[in-house]
């Protein structure tokens, strides 16, 4: 009797497994959250030191364009104006995404809607291969092909935002494409069937149904691409010119947040102002990507509501 009662009241093997599985998943997500918090705290505490410890004015930091952390200006404030880097980072990223997105969407449509077989056989491996090309190699190809090319056409030195954009375009293309493919694939088959059954052409189906339904996913893809462009350091550093000047045009040497960070971090001493200022750049990088994420979330939500109604 007791035996039976115990057996009945005991949670089944399946339930226990369920609980275990759930715990594992929660643990994993907990780990990631811990990690993110850790990194955020670390960068924030390092990045804020410029403003708290070295008493640099935040507003001044992001709106002036004089970056000489080793020197003081006439009033005794350190000269750390990050505006040129911020502007350049934004321009390079936006331009690269702008150029890459139509290409990525075109390829993704081809791979999912037009010729799935050839897409999977031919394009998929090539795109995956592209992701694997190290950024250093992109940088050197940029340095030996793109920079002379730009110099030839536009004059100047060839270093600058345009070269950076072209290198980044190729680098973010696989990221945006593969994520767009995923989101197009996630559009339920019956959407397509319904649209075709209504007599829509393939393009009408793609344009009016599939792309609409996949918009939030595509936006995420673009953001991921932009994130990669934003954070890319080694390749950009080689072609952008690294001059801390306000970019006058697309072919004058400029400097992004990441290129400045990579160039200088090894030459500064931990805990001094030049080092802190670099961490502030990293913090800006972080805040900007946070902002992008929020934007996408907002757009994504609105897109969803439209779809539902």
């Amino acid at each position: 009797m007791d035996e039976i009662q115990r057996k009945l009241q005991q949670s089944s093997k399946a339930t226990r497994e369920d609980r275990l599985g759930r715990t594992i998943c929660y643990t994993c997500i907990g780990l990631i959250i811990m990690l993110v918090t850790c990194i955020l705290y670390f960068i924030a505490s390092k990045g804020i030191a410029t403003f708290t410890k070295d008493h640099v004015n935040v507003w001044q930091f992001i709106t002036t364009s004089n970056w000489e952390p080793g020197n003081m200006d006439s009033k005794g404030h350190p000269m750390v104006g990050a505006l040129p880097m911020i502007v350049t980072s934004f321009s390079v990223t936006l331009l690269a995404a702008l150029v890459a997105t139509p290409f990525a969407i075109g390829v993704a449509i081809f791979m999912t809607e037009i010729s799935a077989k050839r897409g999977a056989k031919l394009l998929q491996p090539v795109i995956e291969l592209l992701v694997g090309i190290p950024s250093v190699v992109y940088g050197f190809i940029g340095l030996s092909l793109i920079v002379p090319f730009i110099r030839h056409i536009f004059g100047g030195t060839g270093f600058g935002i345009l070269s950076g954009t072209l290198v980044l375009f190729v680098m973010v293309l696989p990221t945006i494409t593969s994520l767009t493919v995923d989101s197009l694939k996630a559009v339920p088959m019956h959407y397509r069937q319904a649209s075709l059954a209504l007599g829509a052409t393939r393009w009408q189906t793609i344009y009016k149904v599939i792309l609409r339904a996949a918009t939030p996913g595509i936006l995420t893809a673009i953001i991921f691409g932009m994130a990669r462009a934003f954070g890319e350091a080694l390749a950009v550093q080689m072609v952008i010119g690294n001059a801390i000047l306000m970019p006058k045009n697309l072919v004058s040497p400029a400097s992004t947040l990441t290129s400045k960070l990579t160039t200088d971090i090894g030459n500064t001493v931990m805990g001094t102002l030049p080092n802190d200022a670099l961490w502030s750049l990293a913090l800006i990088l972080l805040l900007m990507s946070l902002f992008f994420n929020m934007l996408v979330r907002f757009i994504g939500k609105r897109g969803n509501i439209k779809n539902a109604s």
Partner: peptide, 11 residues
């Protein structure tokens, strides 16, 4: 998670 992915690799 998205923030983590957009961190520059240098950082």
């Amino acid at each position: 998670i998205e923030v983590l992915s957009s961190l520059p690799s240098v950082v």
